[in-house]
Amino acid sequence: MDAILLQLLNGLDKGGAYALIALGLTLVFGTLGVVNFAHGALFMLGAFCAVALRKLLTLEKVVLDTENLTAWGTPTEIRTPYVETWFGEFGAVLVNYSVPLSILVAIPVMLVIGVAMERGLIKHFYRRPHAEQILVTFGLAIVLQEVIKHFFGANPIPQPMPENFAGAADVGAMLGMDPNVIVYPWWRLIYFAFSVAVIAAVFAFLQFTTFGMVVRAGMADRETVGLIGIDIDKRFTAMFGLAAVVAGVAGVMYTPLLPPDYHLGMDFLVLTFVVVVVGGMGSLPGAVAAGFLLGILQSFASMTEVKDIIPGIDQIIIYLVAVIILLVRPRGLLGRKGVMES
C-alpha cells in the first residue's frame, strides 16, 4: 500500500510538469494552429531565468590573498557575495529563495520572448503546412539551446531549493499512518501544488474573463470573431506569450528537481507532444488530464513488481498508451472533431 501511495505521489508531481508544458503547447496549437517544437526550449529558458538570477545574486567581490597561494602559484581568492555585503541577512535570504523569486523575473522575460518569437518568426508560418512549422520551430529550439550552452556551458547547474523546503515530508504521518513509511520531498509536493494552481489560473483566465472568452470564441471560430471587429490576432499573440510564461515558470520551479542544462527542453519535448496527442490536439482539459494520467502510469510502470511481469515496460509505457489511445480514440481522450483532420 505504501509503495502504491508513493508511486501515486510521484506520478502526480511528474504529471504536473507534463501537464504544465502540454498546456502551453495546446494553447499555442489551439489558438494559432502552430505545432511549436520550440515549446520545450521555452521551458528550458524559464529554468535558465532561475540560473541567471542566482548567478546575479551570488556575484562575488573577489579579494586576492597574496599570502596564500593556489597549487599553481597564483594568489587564492576570498569571495564574498555582494548582496550579503550590502544587505546582510536579508541578502542571504534573497539567495536562499532565489528559485521562487525567479518567477518574478521569468514572467516578464518569458512574455517578451514569447511575443518576440511569435511576431518575429512564427507568424510567417501560420499558413504553411504543419511539416514546415515543425521544421522551423525545431530549428529554433536547437538555436536557443546552443545559445544557452554558449553562455552557461554544457554541464548541469544545480539550483538549491530554499533550505526550509530541502527535506522530505512525512506524508504518511500527516495521513494518520505510521511515521517514516511515506516520506516525500517537500519541493515535489510544492511543485504539484504549484502546477495545479497555475493550471487553475489559466483555466479561470480563459473561463471568467472577457479576454479569455474572446480567445475561446476565436479558437472555436476565428473568422466569425474577426467579422465582428475583434482583432483576434493580437489576442492570439498574447496567448503565445501566456503559453511561454506558463512553460517558463514551470521550468523555474523545476530547477531544484533537475539541475538545468541546455538540453533540458529536448528531454521534455517528445514526451510532451505525446501528452498533447493522447489528450487530444487542441484540447486544454485533455492536455492536463493526459499529463497527469501519463505521469502516474509512468511512475507505476517503474515499480519492480510491474517490471518483473513486463520487463522494460517503464521505458515504453507512455508510447504504448499513446498507440492504444490513438487506435481506440484517434482524436485523443478529449480531442475535437476536425482538428488536424483536413
Binding site: Q7, K14, L257, F268, Q298, S299, D314
Partner: peptide
C-alpha cells in the same frame, strides 16, 4: 532526467 520513479521503490525496499 527525472529518476524519482526509480528512487521511490528504494525507500521501503
Amino acid at each position: 532526467g527525472d529518476f524519482s520513479q526509480y528512487i521511490t521503490p528504494v525507500l521501503n525496499s
